[in-house]
Design a protein around this nucleic acid. Structure first.
Lengths: 353, 353
DNA sequence: AATTTTTTGAGACACGTGCCTCAAATTGCT
DNA sequence: AGCAATTTGAGGCACGTGTCTCAAAAAATT
């Protein structure tokens, strides 16, 4: 019955040093350690150094759980989003509301605040209202403008964590949650290029608007890939629907008439309903490979019914949870350890929904 | 300068009820509440009911942070994995070691234990050693056998959380971390089917072995999709390399010789190195669409150099973190709230690595 | 040297829960 | 009714940190 069991080594993990250990190591009292840790005034530089040195030597990291308990702190994060209508945004909002329970181990509350994306002044004013410790952090989805950039900067100075979310602010920012739009565009191009079986032709690109940085980046990535690897294809100028169904119908059917050699269709904005339903109704483009963005009830259905061939998506749940984790890390002052989860550019086919 | 600011409603969130509140509501003492909450003996059923009722009415949830603090509890999770060599497994192990710091807000330690996947008895013996509270949970990657299934069952009885990980155990289990292999196979088929531009022909399927449940499921999904939607293609019987390079070379080149109408290649095991490097060296199959599994330095390089056309992958980091979150939830007794994150069947192309 | 100012320490209490002891209250039994 | 067993309560200390207060010590000023 006895066999040589695999070696099982269970060393107790070294208990983490506490503020008490710190105090002893630095030769000061716990009160002073506290003063240093929480940046209070009236501590001699020499003492600060001693404590800091001890922190390094012991590898001390404060027990955030205990700290939050003592402070009875709860995190409140605000998601500043555009007004909706958009299915993708609806899903994001749903995930935000869902996120609470999933973080049961931390006292986290998330609010959604709708902001008028076209009024930078209002956005800045809104951000100006937010203050620590009422609000621990904000995830912001809004176009990048000087006012907004400024407001964000001041937020950080006031101790409110902030994070560009999905769209808008420059990726140059150290922290950012959202997918790489250039790669997303390139991936759409790759799929359309490879799905095409009818040789040379042109590709239609439809967008709600090309105003936003995201749309531009997707388009750039798309063109780069087409030009580099599918010389037989040429992508047409972007059609902008401005969210107007009638306008969309006109420009799309015009394009179909004028380009009998259509080989692919790329719907690059996150709201695919208008163009996709127009396309689905047009018998001439039934078998032309089509790629759209974001998983929504609509696109999902379209994929299943094969009126769409692929979806380029970013997982709404991951986006939200990643944002929360990052905001929390920043808010805890663990800027060094902010999780650097990339948001994947997902390719959804009928088979892997 | 003043504009109508957007409405900002910051209601303080209702503080969560504490055991004190519970005691008051149930009309008992905190000691009794403790007895009920922690299932201690010697409490009258009537009293238990009173407390339980109060729990429901208040919506009480114990503050796990505070509880862990009081217990000075740390979570120790074991990942029981096969002996390695495999790049994908290496990546998993890397992510396990990486996971610690990313969970800074909880005292979590993860160990990797290598088990001999072919000796169910040994595996069961190993699992038999694990006991709460030394070990809070185990993620198990091992073939499903009666012994192992039994050992897992007893683990749970001993209060050790357990979780089938990536491969092996039946998905029928309520909790499970890993991708849907049927969907993965179907996705590979879909890609090969759509990437093919040369009409009717056959598809080569290469695997290390077809012994495991995962391989079978992938194959089933693959065939189902090919048969349903690509009647012009027929998939050949699976080639099994058994991890032997020489054998692989023989059976692969035989298949290439005997099937001049090859239209696609599917490498379905997680270790693609042997078959993929053989294929890369054969000029006859240079332009045949090829799909493999799992992102590794090797497959990544192959994708970049275009000797591979797509990778079907599951994100190693997500797998590990998801497993940890689930183990923690189970271990905390929050079986109701175990996060039900699906592991996506990722499609990786050169453009979205 | 005397006085003020700055810096530090000692200690208490809090956060929500676990876990223990001892006594009090209640129940069941003979 | 008396005794034992069961059930409950009161209270304390602990976990690691935050946040006070008050006094002591050290340094800087007059």
């Amino acid at each position: 019955m006895l066999t040589k069991n695999p070696p099982l080594t269970i060393e107790k993990p070294m208990p983490r040093p506490t503020t008490k250990d710190l105090a002893k190591a630095a030769g000061v009292s716990r009160a002073t350690v506290d003063r240093v840790l929480n940046g209070r005034e009236g501590v001699h530089q020499k003492t600060v150094d001693r404590v800091t040195k001890a922190i390094d030597e012991l590898g001390f990291e404060r027990n955030i759980q205990a700290a939050n308990l003592a402070r009875s702190k709860h995190y409140r994060f605000v998601f500043a989003l555009p007004r909706s209508g958009d299915h993708f945004l609806d899903e994001i909002i749903h995930q935000i509301n869902e996120a609470g329970p999933s973080f049961t181990s931390d006292p986290i509350v998330c609010d959604v605040q709708h902001i008028d994306e076209n009024d930078p002044h209002k956005i800045a004013a809104f951000l100006g209202q937010l203050n620590a410790p009422d609000i621990s952090g904000v995830a912001i989805m809004a176009p990048e403008t000087p006012q907004v950039r400024d407001a964000i900067y001041r937020l950080q100075e006031r101790g409110v964590a902030s994070l560009p979310f999905i769209s808008g602010q420059s990726m140059a920012n150290q922290h950012w949650v959202g997918m790489n739009n250039h790669a997303a565009g390139a991936t759409a191009a790759m799929l359309l290029g490879r799905f095409n079986r009818q040789g040379a032709g042109s590709i239609m690109v439809v967008s709600e608007s090309m105003q936003s940085r995201d749309s531009l980046e997707r388009r750039l990535g798309f063109d780069a890939e087409i030009n580099a690897h599918f010389p037989e294809l040429s992508s047409l100028p972007s059609l902008e629907t401005y969210g107007d169904k009638d306008r969309a119908e006109v420009i799309i059917s015009n394009t179909i008439q004028n380009n009998p050699d259509l080989r692919g269709i790329y719907v690059l904005s996150s709201e695919a309903r208008i163009p996709a339903s127009i396309l689905a109704a047009d018998p001439q483009v039934q078998h032309i490979p089509t790629v759209a963005h974001e998983r929504t009830p609509f696109t999902e259905e379209a994929l299943k019914s094969r009126s769409l061939d692929a979806i380029i998506a970013q997982d709404a749940g991951h986006l939200v949870r990643s944002a929360i984790r990052k905001l929390k890390a920043i808010s805890d002052g663990r800027t060094k350890h902010v999780p650097q989860e990339r948001i994947r550019v997902e390719v959804l086919l009928k088979t892997n929904l």
